[in-house]
Amino acid sequence: MRYGRIFPAHWRAALMSMVLPGFGQLANGRPNRAIWLFLAFALISVPLMSWLAIRLPQAMTLPALVSSLAAALGIWSYSIVDAWRDARHRPRAPRQVWQTGGVYALVFLTCNALILPVLVSYVRGHQVASWRIPSSSMAPAILRGDVLFADMSYNCPGCDHAVERGDVAIFTYPNDRTLVYVKRVIGLPGDRVRITGKRVWVNRLALGDAPADDGTASERIDGRQWLADWGDTEGAELDLTVPPGMVFVLGDNRGNSKDSRHFGSVPLRDVAGRARQVWFSMAPGGAVRWSRLGQAIH
């Protein structure tokens, strides 16, 4: 590192901490502080808080993630300021034997190209992921333009929750596996699902009464309750037993939803997460629907 006079030491340290929390501390010859700052940023902030977020009550997902974001940005800024101040106060810090360009490059690559991306993919694949909903097939529970958090610690060995009837599931669309769909789980493997007109039965149990004049019907199963909107559809005739390893899904907006009535049952293994909470919502016109922020999805 021979740009001493182009970059004063404190500038360099601050810049390095901007690239990676703790990196500037490394340049200041404080490896221990560097490691703790990086660990605090990388581990405590995002993975730990999202781990908490999916275990706290549903409505706490948003506050937990906001505070995790604040913590991450706070640790990052602290690292920058600390590197700057430390370098200013100790301009004659001796250079240690390990303080070479090669070590810096290795640390940067390991942290920024290996550790952080792996953590990101772990968090998004197994803890919390965010989904934008561009369709109204789940209205009125989820509106078009909602952005929501989904619990991704779901439906896998060691996960906290198995798929249950009434869950709002995120799954791979079976006819085009590049797409992801969000629908409500109605039937589990082996369940008998019958649809007649505008009523649904699961194992001979009616989910709800016939819809009111506006087409909406309150439906419930296993202690879950939601509002289905049949609109002015004709309804359909369907009677099937869900095959093993498959689930039957329906959109709440029955009149405007492409679901298991069209593409059949969905492999259980393709169900990746369940919707938890809306954290942002924008109406098609572009106006933010403030009242929907923080809304839990049931």
């Binding site: 590192m1 021979r2 001493g4 006079r5 004063p8 030491a9 370098a87 301009p91 004659r92 810090a93 001796p94 250079r95």
Partner: peptide
């Protein structure tokens, strides 16, 4: 001289 970094050593 360009290799000398006053911040590192006297």
């Amino acid at each position: 001289a360009d290799r000398f970094d006053p911040g590192r050593a006297s």
